[in-house]
Design a protein around this nucleic acid. Structure first.
Lengths: 348, 348
DNA sequence: GAATCATGAGAAAGCGTTTTCTCAGAGCGT
DNA sequence: ACGCTCTGAGAAAACGCTTTCTCATGATTC
């Protein structure tokens, strides 16, 4: 009995707009108006409403708002691995920048499972006003197909052919060339590139950069060793690196370099006296390794905040489809102590 | 003209339940039923609906669902600083564990601004089904008052008096005692504790642990130096540490220890030959520093997943208020290479 | 003083779902 | 055959808010 079949629910219910309206003796429309300052409302009434609101500790339900407004004030980010400092930094920069504009970020960790990325991104998009996607291993075709469905979208380290999705990328090809150049100018003649995951887009970029390097430096011996993208894979490559006889090692990234550093240390190989090692990314820890790591610094903190700026641009100009910026960062070689001239030219 | 004043919107509209219903020739109620498998529905009709759904690529709008269901399948986490590996690890563990149960996580970084934490937590709570709160510096009174309003809540490294909010904490007091004990048993007699942020709850715990240690070891000289919680503060303390004349340093955490390590290295002080240094937390990088860091390992990956488990318990037993578990982890001392017997007993 | 206008508040539709309520029709027993 | 129960589908309410529409009231103007 009672008026509605759900009347009972109203006990222990969270305070809603209706409660405020009742207390202030106005309609909920008016409450909404004063809360959002949308239309002109009599100052006296407005004051009464506001008083009622604070007294009841009224806080608008964001889900209701979202449904009515068609926006969630939330953006999603999908990353392949939250354990990677690079993605941690992007997430952090994004979160802080977005927060400044009143947006929150929802995170989706694909745990390196490439096949899940598209699904996660889609789900995130439905819950959020936009998505920033880090999917280094997703196939180009899949990305191309997925991108338009995600629309407010910004890509990290990937680009699409269609020019309407902004992307931020790092010129890994140039960075790795500069690192190689650095080693060569120190006197190294035998290098090895300890490569990253096979299907990683950024690894491919490094590879083409190194091809170019080879073309320009035919005198340099540059070997390629397969590895992964984390500590352990760097550590596991220690023996192979030693066996290679190279004096200069280009590790896929800082994590790999650090794993390698620790492996070499265990084996009693001195860095940089016996072998020079470079990383990539300049994660916060890179300058605290022993020896401090020579690496290619990518402006990791800016990436996140710029990602947000690009996202915001899209959200604001909703509709008016325009060509989006494709930002590319040039890494800057950060010479520290893990590289030096090779001690003696080894017999070749 | 047209039927409603918003009819125009229906162009370029996302496909909704109504579209599926129309295509399948049923009511939207029926579509909902087959999508959720809630009530029995004729297999033939169900098939028709499902076909229509896939053909239109229908994906239910989560905001609509959330409003109707009163849940968002999302939990929030508020952390003081996403740059800290400890919180990164908690976030990661939480995110992965929650994802396994179909939940997502929304992140709120308070950027160390204690006064924002309560607000952020409140906002997060309104958007989510629960909140996990890391607020090491929030005043006890404020926490006590805030906790009930956040209800499905799990606290990290904080506890409340009211026994109905689960909390996960690390026994920092015990851990620091064991580290001190370790140094003493190596032969150190002059120690300094390089403390963390003044109002940090976990710092206070370390302090009481050390008081107890002092009581048990009146013969040991234990000085206290004020510091912070990150790399830089550890680095900045280098001179003070050297000046202290101590041979065994208990750093607030691994970050501080690493900063100190690098500062000592720059000054030519050898670790562990001249000075022994310990950290706390055992962040992933701790075993790759040079020398590898002796530290107290907290099961950082478990923290996140256990936080989710406790959260899930609360979400499931919604209503039936029961006493919640207060989990406490005992850190395990991880002896590596940054600690050793002091070279010579310095003149005292 | 009557007609016009501006102001501002309430009624109601709409956002996209789920779920209750209700009722038509089929199947069954007697 | 009649009425009964049962199955299953549609109508409509509900979730909590925003916003359009509408209309009353008081102010303004000729």
């Amino acid at each position: 009995m009672g008026r509605g079949h759900m009347a009972r629910r109203n006990t222990n219910r969270r305070v809603g707009i209706a409660d405020v309206a009742e207390k202030a003796g106005v309609s909920h429309a008016t409450v909404s108006r004063v809360m959002n300052g949308n239309a002109a409302v009599d100052p006296g009434i407005a004051a009464r409403v506001r008083a009622a609101a604070v007294e009841l500790k009224y806080q608008p339900n964001p889900v209701g708002r979202s449904l009515a407004l068609g926006k969630t004030d939330t953006i999603g980010i999908v990353v392949p691995d939250l354990a990677n400092p690079t993605f941690q930094a992007i997430l952090r920069g994004l979160s802080i920048a977005a927060a400044q504009d009143g947006y929150r970020v929802l995170i989706a960790d694909s745990s390196e499972v490439t096949s899940e990325e598209a699904i996660l991104a889609g789900e995130a998009r439905r819950r959020c006003d936009g998505v920033v996607l880090c999917a280094p291993r997703m196939a180009d075709a899949e990305l191309e197909e997925l991108a338009p469905t995600l629309h407010p979208l910004v890509l990290i380290n990937r680009t699409t052919i269609a020019t309407n999705t902004p992307s931020l990328s790092v010129d890994y090809g140039q960075g790795i060339q500069e690192l190689a150049q650095h080693l060569v100018s120190l006197g190294h003649r035998r290098l090895v590139f300890l490569s990253g995951p096979e299907h990683s887009a950024s690894n491919r970029q490094r590879l083409v950069g190194l091809d170019q390097f080879r073309a320009e430096h035919p005198e340099i011996e540059l070997e390629l060793l397969h590895g992964g993208s984390n500590f352990d894979s760097g550590h596991e490559s220690t023996e192979a690196i030693i066996a290679s006889g190279a004096t200069g090692i280009l590790a896929f990234n800082d994590l790999v370099a650090m794993g390698l550093l620790s492996g070499l240390h265990e084996r009693g190989i001195r860095v940089p006296e016996d072998i020079s090692v470079t990383g990539f990314d300049d994660i916060p820890f890179a300058k605290y390794t022993t020896p401090p790591l020579t690496t290619a610094a990518v402006p990791i903190n800016e990436l996140g905040s710029l990602a947000w700026r690009r996202m915001r641009e899209q959200i604001q100009q909703a509709g008016e489809a325009s060509i989006q910026a494709q930002d590319e960062f040039s890494p800057r070689v950060e010479i520290r102590k893990s590289t030096a001239a090779p001690a003696l030219r080894p017999a070749s």
